[in-house]
Structures are given as structure tokens and as C-alpha cells.
């Protein structure tokens, strides 16, 4: 297997002086391509901060990490934005869709923002992804008219739009009922199996964690198991 992600001695401190809060304390992590990994740990352990840093949305206070062989610490904002768009997909706890756009328009967004327009090929892939998510009859629906589970499946489709190597999911089923949660998790597993996409899923749900090949436990800003 090929190394996808290499994280070493990652520290993250919010604030300064007396009010400083150290969230990550020398965390190190290694992910191989094609892994389906669960990120477990109590609230406040640093899971979300780790995902945010790995998603290139925030820089750590110190430490190093490389993804696909590229040094993410040295990259500037424009380079990180481009990298994020091409190689990383996000699924948030709250779907975080663009409310004034249809399901298809939301899915196509990562591709269109890179190409400068919605290409026919991107729209075709967006439709395929939505069909795969079981939303064939909701393609042109405004996202406001979709249920919570449907919105989250649209968010999964959007995360996969640019065929990223890594999908970071922060409590993707935390806001869903059991049936919808199971459905979303089955979709993620299926894509992992069929396309080899690497998933790092932060969750409190033991059933979700059990469905993953690997469990990474974070406690007090460090990986413990």
C-alpha cells in the first residue's frame, strides 16, 4: 500500500497566555491509501481540530504533515485551496449545502469552481453520483426541499465529485436517524471498496466505528490506539 498521509508531532494551541488551550499535543498519524478509518475519542479530544488541519482549512501551531508527498505546512493559502479542491472531500455533521442551489448544482460545485463553469462532463458525473446515492428523483430539487438524510447523501456526493484521494467526514451521521445513518455509512463503505477512496471518519457511534477497517482513538490531543 502507498502512504497517503503522514502526520508528525502535531501541536495546536488556541489563544495565548493564560487563556491558551492546547488541543493537539504532539499527535502523529499515518494513513495508507484506500483505508476506511474511524476517528474515535471523547468530545474535546481534538478530533475535529485534527480533521480541520488535515483538510487544510487551518494550520497547526507546530509539527509537520505531508499528503500525497506534498508538504502541507509550507504551502500558501492559494496552494492549499487548490490542493483541497483536487484531493480532499469533506462531509460535515451538518450537511452544509448551498441553500439557493439544487442538489445537482451543489454536487457539481467543486468541479465548476475549478473549471470556471459547469461542464457537461461534470454534470453527468454529478447525476451519476446522485443516482448512486439513491437520489435519482431529487437531482434538480432545491436542497431546501430535501430531508436530513437526503441532504447528507448530497453532501457525500459533493465530497466525491472531484474523485479525491481522501474524504474527511466529521460526525457524518451524528445528525441522522438510525436508518439514514446506516444508509450513509453503507454508501461510504461501498465507495471505499469500489473506488479505493480513503476515508477518515470522526464518530461517537460505535456501530459506525465497527463498520470501519481501522479505529484510531484520540485522547487529550494524542493518538492512543
Amino acid at each position: 500500500m502507498t502512504t497517503l498521509l503522514e502526520v508528525r508531532d502535531l501541536f495546536k494551541t488556541y489563544g495565548a497566555g493564560d487563556t491558551a488551550t492546547r488541543v493537539l499535543r504532539g499527535l502523529s498519524l499515518h494513513l495508507e491509501e484506500g483505508e476506511l478509518a474511524a476517528l474515535l475519542g471523547p468530545s474535546g479530544s481534538g478530533k475535529s481540530t485534527l480533521l480541520t488541519i488535515l483538510g487544510t482549512l487551518m494550520k497547526p501551531t507546530s509539527g509537520s504533515y505531508t499528503m500525497l508527498g506534498q508538504d502541507m505546512i509550507a504551502a500558501n493559502d492559494a496552494e492549499l485551496t487548490e490542493f483541497r479542491n483536487a484531493h480532499i472531500g469533506f462531509v460535515f455533521q451538518f450537511h452544509n449545502l448551498l441553500p439557493d442551489f439544487t442538489a445537482l448544482e451543489n454536487v457539481v460545485f467543486p468541479s465548476a469552481v475549478r473549471a470556471g463553469r459547469e461542464t457537461p462532463a461534470a454534470r453527468a458525473r454529478g447525476r451519476d453520483l446522485l443516482k448512486r446515492m439513491g437520489l435519482a428523483d431529487r437531482i434538480d430539487y432545491p436542497t431546501a426541499n430535501l430531508s436530513g438524510g437526503q441532504k447528507q447523501r448530497v453532501a457525500v456526493a459533493r465530497a466525491l465529485m472531484n474523485s479525491p484521494e481522501l474524504v474527511l467526514a466529521d460526525e457524518p451521521t451524528g445528525n441522522l436517524d438510525r436508518a439514514s445513518a446506516t444508509q450513509v455509512m453503507e454508501l461510504l463503505s461501498e465507495i471505499n471498496r469500489e473506488e479505493g477512496t480513503t476515508f477518515l471518519i470522526s464518530t461517537h457511534d460505535e456501530k459506525i466505528a465497527a463498520a470501519c477497517q481501522r479505529q484510531i482513538v484520540v485522547v487529550d490531543g494524542n493518538v492512543t490506539g
Binding site: T81, R84, N85, P99, N162
Partner: peptide, 16 residues
């Protein structure tokens, strides 16, 4: 603001 944040997370640059 939240939508701008989503767009940025999805790879939209500041220029966009």
C-alpha cells in the same frame, strides 16, 4: 458567511 465558508472549504479561492 456560512455559505462563503462552505465554498472556501470546497476549494473556492479568495479571488472567486
Amino acid at each position: 458567511r456560512p455559505e462563503i465558508g462552505i465554498m472556501r472549504a470546497m476549494g473556492a479561492g479568495r479571488g472567486f
